[in-house]
Amino acid sequence: MFQWFHRFGSAPYLYRLAGRLAPWLGGLCLLSLVAGLYLGLVVAPADYEQGDSYRIIYIHVPAAWMSMFVYVVMATSSAVFLIWRLKMADVVALASAPIGAAFTAVALITGSFWGKPMWGTWWIWDARLTSELLLLFLYLGYLALRGALETPQSAARAAAILAVVGVVNIPIIHYSVEWWNTLHQPATITKLDKPSMHISMLRPLLLMVLAFQLLYFYNLMIRTRTLILEKEGRARWVAELAGGERD
């Protein structure tokens, strides 16, 4: 366990691992994205009530799930950073933040596009929408805090505390539709009962969820590498790497 921990804590090891994984993640992501979009937008049947408008679910739901998943990754690695002072955990958290913010923004914007024709409004201050907006502000606040403090160390620590504390919002987002009256509909898939979606529509959705998951990890690898180089720019192994790649 500790050996594993130490290996991930080593910058050159993580740098090389991320470099090796990135092309595979990117390739698989592209494949599942193309297949999922084709199946979802072309093959899947229209909905009995919403017609073709429901197809935004193939972007909206994976983005919304990832907005929460990425936050949990960010909060967990921030906690690891706070407790074990593992620098690479902080790198993973920082690399995740803009990706998560993007997923959150996509979920909010696509939801708004669907809300106008279906509900009759772009936005409503119900518990689900408000808590998801709060998630976007948590991501942006995390990034702002990193830039606001003078020394990188204290910025990293303050932002990590914010990330850990903010994880309280995640169960609120998930259960908001059950705890309170909301305009947003309750969960279709993530419930103990069987999914309330026909299998012909569900399959492309699950494929899109996989694609978004891969998209996150692909971006995480790329961003982690960049951040490691930025952080370790003066280290000898980076100099060797730069020298070795010149020819």
Binding site: P45, D47, Y48, I57, W119, G120, Q185, P186, S196, H198
Partner: peptide
């Protein structure tokens, strides 16, 4: 003054609904 539709969590093709 304003009426909003609340959609449920069920999605299905028209034939299945029928």
């Amino acid at each position: 003054t304003e009426v909003l539709a609340k959609h449920d969590e069920n999605y299905m093709p028209p034939e299945v609904a029928e």
